[in-house]
């Protein structure tokens, strides 16, 4: 899936998000939209590793694999799906590869 055509994403600026971990879920309030998102892992972890950089699913998976006990190749498909969902919610912006 990784390749020159893979889309890249930029996360919402950190100062636009209020993040409150609860039990199994994490609340993310987005200041710009006024919407509260209720998310489960690995969404908070994805947003945390992305910082302000434009990254592809493969790059995000590699960052996550470096920090958590998972295989980057296995994680890539899951991460790609989550990134598209987060883009649809407005928490990420899809940018040109």
């Amino acid at each position: 899936m990784a390749g020159p055509q893979s889309p890249k994403y930029i996360a919402e600026r950190a100062d636009q998000l209020l993040v409150e971990p609860l039990d199994a879920m994490t609340l993310i309030y987005q200041r710009r939209s006024g919407i509260t998102h209720i998310v489960a892992e690995p969404v908070p972890e994805i947003l945390a590793v992305m910082g302000g950089d434009a990254l592809s699913a493969a790059e995000v998976a590699a960052w996550l694999a470096a920090q958590f006990d998972l295989d980057a190749t296995d994680a890539e498909a899951v991460v790609a799906t989550r990134l598209e969902e987060l883009a649809a919610l407005g928490l990420l912006e899809r940018v040109r590869a």
Partner: peptide, 10 residues
């Protein structure tokens, strides 16, 4: 759980 409390209170 706290997340269920959050959903019920919203």
């Amino acid at each position: 759980g706290a997340s269920e409390v959050f959903m019920r209170l919203t």
